[in-house]
Amino acid sequence: MSLRIVSWVGLLLNVAGFLILASTGDPVTSTAIYLAGTLAIILGNLRRDVEVVHVPVHVVKEERRELPRPEELRARKTRAPGR
């Protein structure tokens, strides 16, 4: 939640930068505030993707066919075909 507030503050600083430029004509102060706002927006958004989302995990057991080894097959008794 705190990160989201940082983004909103950044947006306000952006707007403030424009207003200061419009009202005072001071390019240095307005640009500094604008850049600070932009930085805050970036910082506020940077960490969003690490928010932990709980997704139910279903473990699917892969059915593996147990194959005999060739020597085990050789050792088997000979069977009547089809039996």
Partner: peptide, 18 residues
């Protein structure tokens, strides 16, 4: 896949596999 095992063992499939 069992046929590959039988071939490796030099065995005839119907005589070793059910």
């Amino acid at each position: 896949e069992l046929f590959l095992v039988a071939r490796a063992a030099l065995e005839i499939e119907v005589l070793k596999l059910s």
